[in-house]
């Protein structure tokens, strides 16, 4: 018999499995990062430390343009989806209206429907239903991608904000109204401060998902509006090179940075439970 009943965590086969799983998850990423600093052309034999591949990246205008495109798209899509998602969540939470359930379910569609289907949906939409003008000056040329990203991102925001609203004490809003605030004033003074952590988490999620998205962008992007993942995909298809490793490492670093900033901000907000 075992002494401590909660000892599942100390049982060695379980620990071994946990360690093996973590190795499975991280080993490929570690190898990828390591070989981005390799001096050789080959990505499997270590030839010494070098920043050669990073230097090449910096001199690759197409890749830099793609990175710029991705950041612009992610920024605009994040802002738009924060706005739309918050508005939708507030309306669904606050009001009773015909079609409320339908809208709530409908907003889950972009999350549930496979990405490939959304991708072809936007391909069809921008090719046939509302033809997106070509030859627009940058960054307007990225408009179609921003619209498509916003469509699949704002439902995520709506869900996160809605979940946060569930923990809102409605008496707080009533208190504000009782003390003389009208509907808008009460929303602004009491509800929005409560939503801060959810808005931060939403922004982080939306930005990351937009930056990550390949499939939907793949169908919406034109030859002049290649985003970072689409560009990387073309490189990956073509060959496995240390250059791709370097690009990927940069993106990993960017993601890690975002996550770190998010965790820090969240901790600061979280210091004040409500």
């Amino acid at each position: 018999m075992r002494g401590d009943p909660l000892d599942y965590g100390r049982c060695w086969p379980l620990r071994l499995l946990l360690a093996a799983t973590l190795a499975f998850l991280y080993l490929p990423l570690v190898v990828l990062v390591a070989f981005s600093f390799n001096a050789g052309r080959r990505v499997t034999v270590w030839r010494g430390f070098s920043l050669e591949w990073y230097e090449r990246l910096v001199r690759n205008p197409e890749l830099l343009a793609a990175l710029g495109n991705s950041l612009v798209v992610a920024s605009f899509a994040t802002l738009l989806s924060l706005l739309l998602g918050t508005l939708a969540a507030l309306a669904l939470w606050r009001f009773r209206f015909p079609g409320r359930i339908g809208l709530e379910r409908g907003l889950a569609l972009p999350i549930l429907v496979p990405e490939i289907c959304l991708g072809v949906a936007f391909l069809v939409f921008f090719a046939r239903v509302v033809p997106w003008p070509t030859g627009l000056p940058w960054p307007l040329s990225l408009g179609a991608i921003v619209l498509a990203h916003t469509s699949f991102l704002f439902p995520f925001v709506a869900i996160l904000v809605r979940a946060r609203l569930e923990s809102f004490n409605p008496e707080l809003e009533e208190a504000a109204r009782d003390l003389g605030a009208g509907t808008w004033r009460a929303l602004q003074d009491v509800v929005l401060p409560h939503l801060k952590p959810a808005l931060l988490a939403s922004a982080l999620l939306a930005f990351t998902l937009s930056l990550d998205d390949f499939v939907i962008t793949f169908f919406t992007a034109g030859p002049d509006t290649v985003t970072f993942p689409v560009k990387v995909y073309a490189m990956v298809r073509f060959s496995v090179t240390p250059e791709v490793n370097a690009v990927s490492t940069l993106l990993l670093a960017l993601t890690a940075l975002l996550a770190w900033v998010g965790v820090r901000l969240q901790a600061r907000l979280g210091g004040r439970p409500s």
Binding site: L29, L32, T208, V240
Partner: peptide
Amino acid sequence: LPFWTNLLIRTYALMAV
């Protein structure tokens, strides 16, 4: 954490290994 990193990169990393 891997969920937050790019799907394409993760697939590529596995491919390289």
